[in-house]
Write a protein that binds this DNA or RNA. Structure first.
Lengths: 149, 149
DNA sequence: TTACATGCAAAGCATTTGCAGATAA
DNA sequence: TTATCTGCAAATGCTTTGCATGTAA
């Protein structure tokens, strides 16, 4: 019952990220701090490796591609980012900690979060030997101009 | 109320595919017939470009990579295959015409179909300018041996 | 001091493309 | 005959790797 009044707090999001990084025995190096700032300091959004690279450049900083890819994977592994698989040819990450699904506008490549409570999903429970990791719901939309198939 | 007694009929699936190909003004060439046979003649399953290539080889036939990729895309465009996006680095296609969702066992790369009626999903209706294309539900599972994160 | 991180450039890999030759209708 | 397809090999684009150098604690 709390979720409705939760307000997004970017400062906190960044601090939480750094805390989580350290808790997981990963060093909060300069590069990781810069990336965490870019990722968590601008509200809820969806991030790809190459738009992160652009943003780093725009701030006149330099972080290598390899580090950016590594960092995105690490942040995902420690649970501060979530990978969303909507499209084969680009990895996308989501910084929204709240449980939610995705609306994907296919012909624009645009993604919008849908709060979980707007979709009513009932999945039967799992056998004991299996661990539910995640449920991805992607509602795929096309604008009407694009009418093939 | 019919779905429970519907029996999968591979012969029919192949014939339907060929009919659909011709209906869409695409020629049912030798290559496309071979591929349609492999794809639709073995029951419900999930197919990737490279396992199709292997299957073609195993039958001592030769179809080029380019043709296999093109064909998978065409079959998807005319609606006899459905693309499932579970993993960034491999395109997968599903030959199951019935409405269903997917269970993805992440550490094994295995996919299992879940009939729609086993999952209860309620999506709010779309504004008129948007066209719902598809709803992908992927239930991601890990077996317990794999316990990181 | 030393384990961990970073950067670079090269490698990897699935997929796509351009185009010449082949084929279905 | 002619539009459509196929095959080849090269190109593409994202992501990963190997390794030498740098850095946090």
């Amino acid at each position: 019952m709390v979720s409705a009044i939760k307000v997004y707090d970017p400062t906190n999001a960044y601090n939480n990220a750094i805390r989580k990084i350290e808790q997981n025995g990963i060093r909060a190096t300069k590069q990781r701090r810069i990336l965490a700032k870019l990722i968590f300091d601008k509200g809820t959004r969806h991030i790809s490796a190459d738009n992160l690279i652009d943003e780093v450049k725009k701030e006149n900083r330099k972080i290598s591609m390899a580090t950016i890819y590594n960092t995105l994977k690490q942040f995902t592994a420690i649970g501060i980012l979530r990978e969303i698989v909507v499209d084969q040819n680009k990895s996308l990450y989501c910084n929204n900690k709240q449980s939610h699904y995705h609306l994907y506008i296919e012909d624009e490549g645009k993604i919008v979060d849908i709060p979980t409570q707007n979709i009513d999903l009932n999945i039967p429970s799992m056998p004991a030997c299996l661990q539910l990791h995640n449920i991805d719901v992607i509602v795929r939309i096309r604008t009407l101009k694009d009418k093939k198939n």
